[in-house]
């Protein structure tokens, strides 16, 4: 318990971090004219990989195909790279950089890995369906007061709380 308190205190005050994040988003609105985004960058990478394997098939596809022959030439790809760099800076400064598979002490690497992979697949798919993820829709879209983004946000929490019980074992200490 004691340990956890210390590690928790090392994080920035959540409200101040929220203000920092909000100002970042505001700058994005003012400069780019678009909000933050992460899943698009991933999808572009996915399109790029598919292009390498099956070029004609990908280009003729209705979804990835419309991104053309060079899907990586897109501002959100650069934003995703930036997110990684920013995270790296912060982690190094706070001395939090540690190679690990984060899980509960009672949980196994296998379970945690399987859940992370499956969860990733669901999130990757859902982000395309909803044209954005927690960054593009739930954060940026709600800040723009868009109805669809609020609906998406509410559904994320509904889905998350409904399924939380099923996946609790990975965090058992």
């Amino acid at each position: 318990m004691k340990n956890q308190d210390i590690s928790k205190n090392r994080y920035m005050n959540p409200y101040l971090a929220g203000i920092g994040l909000g100002l970042t988003l505001l700058v994005s609105f003012l400069v780019l004219g678009a909000g933050l985004g992460a899943s698009s960058g991933l999808a572009r990478m996915a399109a790029c990989m598919e292009l390498c394997v099956a070029r004609a098939h990908t280009l003729s596809g209705e979804y990835f195909g419309k991104w053309g022959q060079n899907p990586m030439q897109y501002y959100l790809v650069f934003m995703l790279v930036g997110t990684f760099i920013g995270g790296l800076c912060s982690a190094l400064l706070a001395n939090r950089m540690k190679l690990q598979i984060e899980r509960g002490k009672q949980s196994t690497v296998r379970l945690r890995t399987a859940f992370a992979l499956m969860g990733g697949i669901l999130v990757g798919f859902a982000s395309r369906l909803a044209q954005g993820c927690t960054s593009g829709q739930a954060l940026s879209g709600t800040a723009l007061l868009l109805t669809g983004s609020f609906v998406f946000l509410v559904c994320i929490f509904a889905g998350g709380y409904a399924a939380a019980y099923l996946f609790r074992r990975q965090w058992n200490d």
């Binding site: 992460a38 990684f84 920013g86 995270g87 982690a91 992370a116 927690t134 409904a162 996946f167």
Partner: peptide, 30 residues
């Protein structure tokens, strides 16, 4: 699309423990 997408996303989020943006920061911290 957003309702179904949101629900699937929520399940994936709690299952995988990440969302795309935070996972990028997560990779950065190892």
């Amino acid at each position: 699309a957003y309702i179904v997408g949101g629900l699937i996303f929520g399940v994936g989020f709690v299952m995988g423990g990440w969302c795309p943006g935070t996972a990028a920061a997560g990779v950065a911290s190892g």
